[in-house]
Amino acid sequence: MTNSVDRRVRASQKRRRLMAAAARVLHEQGVERTTLADIAREAEVPVGNVYYYFKTKDELVRAALAEHTAHLDELTGRLDELADPRDRLKGLIAAWVEQRDVAARFGCPTGTLAAELGKRADGTLDAEAGAVIRRLLEWAARQFRELGLSGPDTEPDDLALTLVAGYQGMSLLAHALRDPDVTTREGARLLHWLDGLN
């Protein structure tokens, strides 16, 4: 009994390592340049074991998207513990700025993956990548709703779109220019914009 439990635990841990490795390697190298061997090496798993857990590269892309969703949920879960929705949004911006060096090297993990998947001929995974971004938009819109802003320029969904578009733009530019300071400056601008909303 203990041996079968141990095997299941080890199998679960190996699968988690492969999912985390897929998220990292696909972010750093892109879908087309990444091989299953790259992910196996990053996860410190024999390449033959990858096929036991994930039959295709697309399954690994889905696993990476699940990792991005889990990271987003973890971040927003921590932010939801803050009492003030404006503080939650500021915390989100601060988290983006903390990742400025990663953004400068590789771009936004989900945004770059969504852009790459959108160019594939089969078009099967781009909607799944878009769903992760939509999840962030919905969370941000809830925060803006809780702020109770009123006026023609304060529609919560539009404000959420402005915020997330600002993040995607600063990630893209920081990456294109290989300049993490772009994220720092744009993060400060987003904080100023947020403070000015009434």
Rank of each mutant, 00 (worst) to 15 (best):
T183K: 03
P46N: 06
L161T: 13
V25R: 04
G187W: 05
D101C: 00
L65M: 09
G30W: 01
R8P: 01
V132I: 15
G123F: 01
R78V: 12
V61C: 02
A43D: 04
A63F: 00
E116I: 14
A121T: 08
S4C: 00
D158E: 12
L36A: 14
A165L: 10
E44H: 12
A43I: 11
F106V: 12
G166I: 09
S4P: 00
R41D: 15
T183M: 11
A66Q: 11
T2K: 04
A114V: 09
A188R: 13
E74I: 00
E155N: 14
V47F: 03
T112I: 07
E81L: 14
E128H: 11
Y52N: 10
T183L: 10
N49P: 00
R7H: 08
E59C: 01
V45Q: 03
W96F: 12
G166F: 10
R78S: 13
R17S: 11
F106I: 06
L26H: 01
R24H: 11
S12W: 04
A174H: 01
R16V: 03
M19P: 02
D6G: 02
K57S: 01
L79R: 06
L190A: 13
D84G: 08
D80N: 14
L72E: 07
F106S: 14
L117I: 08
E42Y: 11
V25C: 00
T162L: 14
A141I: 07
R10H: 09
N49F: 02
Q29A: 12
A66R: 10
W139Q: 01
R100S: 08
E155H: 13
T69P: 00
A141Q: 08
L194F: 12
L149K: 07
S171M: 06
L172K: 00
A63W: 01
R86M: 06
A174V: 02
L137K: 15
M170P: 04
K57A: 00
Y52S: 09
T69S: 13
V50K: 02
R33A: 14
Q13R: 15
A21K: 03
E44M: 06
S12L: 09
L190Y: 12
A141M: 08
T124Q: 14
D158T: 15
A121S: 12
Q99H: 07
A165E: 01
A20R: 04
D153V: 02
R100Y: 04
L125Y: 03
A188K: 11
S4Y: 02
S171C: 15
G118M: 04
L149C: 08
K14G: 07
